[in-house]
Design a protein around this nucleic acid. Structure first.
Lengths: 228, 228, 228, 228
DNA sequence: CATGAATGAGGATTCATTCAT
DNA sequence: AATGAATGAATCCTCATTCAT
């Protein structure tokens, strides 16, 4: 039952002879797993999580249905791992945008991170939609609690990078807020709000707005508005 | 095809006795319909639209499954009518907040409308969630095109009220924007962004923010940020 | 349960006063009944008995579904009455073709009857199909035994007219058979065989034959073949 | 979509052990499929296609309902495959009766084929009934077009064997007809007409005729009647 | 490990029939 | 007599999951 998350077997296999074989096997296993995840991403995105069937995933991954269940305990577990993947990518993007190893002003950092979020959305609309649309209760009910914790933890991670930039802005006296987490939340809410509206076909039609323009305006409004 | 409230007692019925019967029947029918809608709202909210079954709805409404289908053609049609209800309530709230018949400054109007949206969310979290979460394509595929058009038309209505206030702000020289629809979109996106994040249990947990405080901050940031 | 067949109330109502009213009512009732039967014929023919719904019949007859059940106990009972109607028409046609009151040779009579059968098929394809396709066991199971007996009795009637002509042919020494019922059966089987094949779309396509030509050939073959 | 026997063990499999397993699996699959078809034949015959449920078939075949759908896409598809089976049997019988590899006179051939048809009916009354009673439009609407084409093609095949014998009769100057297809149609119509009447319980009762006697008479009448 | 056949619990929807008014 | 709302059993079909090989 706790199968899915066991991750890549910790390396450090002491047996040289077997290592060759074992690691090949492991590579193959990891590859399979990845194939399935990749297929699931496409299938879930195209048909929607509920409409998509595990069979669809298996066919797309070119494995048997049984094999899917060899790597993932439930359909929801697959989704959870996709969420984890998406979060990882997003966090990596945000981290890179923050660029701790370089000297950037807070405003630059905030703009870079806002841009990174937009790019993540544009590059990975499937992941973005999954991250926004997944049903917490259903997920929590059908996956290993450990994985759910992971989703939670990584979600937290994202907001923390943003908060870091807000803190810097505070230190640079660009903005004055009592609660940096709240300020970061406002930023996220605003930017995400644009993406949420435009990622929904009906609402996008109603607004008839250009994503990049709207997002840019929002970015400036938020940075400007939070500023003193 | 089955419409339920079709009809309206043939007007000009000369027979008081019969009219009474007919109108009572109609009242009862409308009542039934409402019972089902009410039940569906609760059931869909509790179990989620996909997980909920028409049987659940029937049981909650204390009618037979067949009766549900007497009033609504498909499960999705029920959802569509709930969406229409929700939109009607929201639009009424926005209209009341705009208060065309009173002399309000643009800023006041914008704040009143922002408040109205928040209150709508707080009073009708189920409707809000439904409105945000429904799947356009699935809905469009299984309901009468006319009803879908209604959903679309009313969604448009909401943003238009907001735009009206933005135009007034423009006239009052409070803000200077090229595109009032875009400005209204930014407002909606920002406010809605807060609600979206906090209406999702996992994200609400992560942010650990107070809804009213966050929403209030967002309101001021947006109004301030859009202002010249 | 034995409602449907009670037929037209035997006339001879002794009460003159009431007779006017009652007979109008009766006429109206008969009319209603006929409307329903007419509607059912069309609907059953268009959709097929199984696919057609009682609702379809009610709508076509412009009465409520309840009214349909006021006149007929079950859906199958409606079918049975249509069968009776069809048989009545067919028998009347055969009787007219036989023309007992006129002096026809046996061969002429046989040809006239064969023609009559073809015309019946061409004029009333719905009735013909119903008569050929109804499922005995299902019918017997869901209708009043009396009505079933009627269907049986009238079916018998049809073959008897044919047999009468065969007997005449026997008397005229045109044919020599041991069993006139069997000879009549051969006639019916042959003629009906043509109609059966051509009334089925797929088989009609395969044969690509002209109905009248095929039927004519069959008539001559049978009359010729039976003749000594 | 689900085909079942798709595949055929990849040829050239070098591993005897595995080949054994694979082919056993395939034999088992074919067996299952056959079990279901056999069960369906019985169930459809006993209850009638419309009244019979897929559940009935599953129970009779001693498999689960899901398994039935693993082998056949729809209820109608099952019927279509039964039709194909029936047609195959019938055509094989006709072909054998024609006996192309032997020297038979045309009359003998025609009689042999007539006998074969009768025997087919007697040996496989269920198949015969299915072949005569299936509803073209409903079938066409719910099965794979390819299968429908097959049904059509094989139906054509049957009449062609008959036509071949008619052509021979033409060549032998036994009969003189303009259109051999029409002559074959008359033969089929006549013989089939007997079977149609006697395969229907109510009509069989009415005729009270002995099948073999009636059929024999018909055969002679047709062969005699078509002859010059 | 991998396979894919088998399962069977639902789920949405239909429709003949009933019955209160 | 007529209505038409209500019923609920029945039906086809789906699909996540298991398991023997």
């Amino acid at each position: 039952m706790t199968r899915g998350v066991r991750g890549m077997t910790q390396s450090g296999n002491p047996n040289g002879q077997i290592r060759g074989t074992a690691s090949r096997r492991e590579r193959e296993k990891a590859q399979r797993r990845d194939d399935i995840l990749r297929a699931a991403r496409d299938v879930f995105f195209q048909h929607g999580f509920h409409t998509a069937t595990v069979d669809d995933v298996a066919v797309a991954a070119e494995v048997s249905k049984g094999t899917v269940y060899l790597y993932f305990d439930t359909k929801e577990t697959i989704l959870a791992h996709l969420l984890l993947e998406g979060l990882d990518m997003l966090i990596a993007d945000l981290e890179a945008a923050y660029a701790a190893d370089r000297r950037f002003g807070a405003k630059t950092r905030l703009r870079r991170m806002a841009d990174a979020y937009l790019h993540f959305y544009q590059q990975n609309p499937e992941y973005y939609r999954m991250l926004m649309a997944f049903d917490r209760s259903q997920l929590q009910a059908s996956i290993d609690p450990g994985i759910y914790q992971e989703v939670y933890a990584r979600s937290l991670h994202g907001i923390e990078w943003l908060e870091r930039a807000v803190k810097q802005a505070q230190e640079e006296n660009l903005i004055v807020v009592e609660n940096t987490r709240e300020a970061a939340s406002v930023l996220w809410a605003g930017l995400n709000g644009v993406l949420v509206l435009l990622s929904h076909p009906l609402r996008a039609e109603i607004l008839a707005a250009d994503l990049e323009s709207l997002y840019g305006t929002m970015t400036e409004v938020l940075i400007g508005g939070l500023g003193k």
